[in-house]
Amino acid sequence: MIKFEHVFFQYEYDNLPILEDVNIEIGEGELIALLGLNGSGKTSFFKMINGLLKPSSGRVVVDGMDTKEENLLWDIRKRVGMIFQNPESQIVGTTVEEDVAFGMENIGVPREEMLKRVDQVLDFVGMSDLKHVEPHRLSGGQKQLLCVASTLAMHPKYMVMDEPTSMIDPINRENILKIIVDLYKFGKTVLFSTHILDEIVVTPRVIYLRNGKVVFDGSPVEVIDSVKEEFGTSDFIEFQSNLYRYGFIEHFMDVEKLSERLVSLCQSSSKR
């Protein structure tokens, strides 16, 4: 479990409060989307989870371990896999393969297992062909996929992904979303942020940050209904909000599930 207890945060030499009295509990096996305007504090929030940033006051606790305790950081970071907003900052290997192996070496994965996982995760993100390529030659979206692969290879318990789909083409974006949902189904705890509203249909829980404060925390339907004025919405989400209002659906769904639902609703309506 990840717990934020009265967390306040500001960057050094800066008096602006970035996070203000954040209290949140994230249970094992949850899938959560973090939303908020640019600058609302999402990345800062994520960086607190693995102790990259420490609360100015309050506590962040991961599986009972306080991120302020330096000697626990190693263990915390092994559990929390992070994918940053700018993938470049995260790539260290001189080839794709090495980059995937690097994190595993660090946490002491045996060589044979390591080689196996390299192939597994590269296959998972569809980059097997690029195994021997130097990362600086990859395009933006390919770099992002590489980061997903490298992080997955370490088998973290929590996956924290800061805008994992922001620079990826629609098909690869669907892949990443599918990966997110699969991880969730396998029992991993996944948190991700996104500005692409259509993506929140896959999650049961949305947290919304406004100026560093958690102002909404609930199902996507509820949260979107509360924030669409200040944040915006999309035609797909609006369409589903209407269906929800009239009782045709209980929660947002992806295209496939929603089309099945609509077709069966139509069929049963004509029979009556």
Partner: peptide, 23 residues
């Protein structure tokens, strides 16, 4: 590498299947 926006995709999927149904 492209996909039409989700509402489009939904529309394509649903359209044919409900064509003959009197809702």
């Amino acid at each position: 590498g492209m996909l039409p926006p989700p509402l489009y995709r939904l529309a394509w999927r649903v359209k044919e299947q409900v064509e003959k149904i009197n809702i």
